[in-house]
Design a protein around this nucleic acid. Structure first.
Ligand SMILES: [Zn+2]
Ligand SMILES: [Zn+2]
Ligand SMILES: [Zn+2]
Ligand SMILES: [Zn+2]
Lengths: 148, 148
DNA sequence: GAGCTGTCTGTTATCTTATAACATATCTCT
DNA sequence: AGAGATATGTTATAAGATAACAGACAGCTC
């Protein structure tokens, strides 16, 4: 236990090489990636097996550097670089385009507050709030058929 | 193999026997069930393979009789029996107890409206809105350690 | 009745997603 | 060096979901 004197040879804050390889892949990606897609992209870094990727993903998520999109079973780098206490990781929400697959991270605080108030009225103590929307992004809305 | 339940006892509108067997299992369950847990419960109805269960689940969800909980990869019967245009199935939200597994269905309309307004401000056209909360139910909050 | 069509169903095989379990390496402090 | 913690590598398997094809059945046309 004690403290965590950070080894100064590390570029990231307590991130191991696997973590940084996975984060780099997510940050480069144009959209959410499945864990096995990440794995394909980090093979040239020496990673070979799913647990290595999942462990890195879990750490990154815990640090507020990446997010899991539940409705896609996929992962993205945080759009803000990282989350802090001020910008809570568990108050991020995503809008996902069904057509091009783009995922945009937005602040869920107002929606989460509304959801949380309904939940606390039922006696629940709320931890993580998941808000995800499926639809069409601006670009795809212009190209796709629609009402009107 | 040979025993076929006679279809004249149909209660549901356009539901096949598989659909009703799956729905009955979900309705009886005390919490969300994975598709393979459902399968175990409907084997005595003659269902044997995953596609039969998944097909029934997809139909039930399409009819507003059941919901998928994305963060659990699990399914529940709709708490209202069914959804209509007035009570939209894509505006249901769930609160899930991390300790006892209970899932409570609530109306997501206020939260969804807040989320949707943030999305439309970015040019998105929103379809389905997913809101799920993880935390502790009233009963488990009383038993679990907490701040204060 | 024969033939077509569409829906629902049964069955096999396979694919995708995720973790358990165990072994090995590294680092830190004593 | 030795003990304890953290990070990694590796194998195997669990859990979730679908593709693809085959058979059954109702409704319709001729
Ligand atoms: Zn973020
Ligand atoms: Zn798009
Ligand atoms: Zn419902
Ligand atoms: Zn509980």
């Amino acid at each position: 236990m004690t403290a965590r004197p950070p080894p100064d040879t590390r570029a990231g804050p307590g991130l191991g090489p696997n973590d940084r390889a996975v984060l780099a892949v997510l940050a480069d990606a144009k959209g959410p990636l499945g864990a096995y897609e990440v794995l394909d992209q980090v093979r040239h870094h020496g990673l070979k097996a799913p647990p290595q990727v999942y462990r890195a993903l879990h750490r990154l998520i815990g640090l507020g550097l990446a997010h899991r999109i539940e409705s896609l079973n996929a992962f993205v780098a945080c759009a803000h670089g990282r989350h802090s206490d001020a910008v809570r990781a568990d108050r991020a929400m995503f809008v996902i385009c069904d057509r091009c697959g783009a995922a945009v991270e937005l602040d869920a605080t107002p929606a989460a507050a509304a959801a949380e108030s309904a939940a606390t009225a039922k006696g629940f103590r709320v931890g993580r709030v998941i808000v995800e929307m499926k639809g069409l992004c601006a670009g795809c809305t212009a190209e796709a058929p629609g009402p009107g």
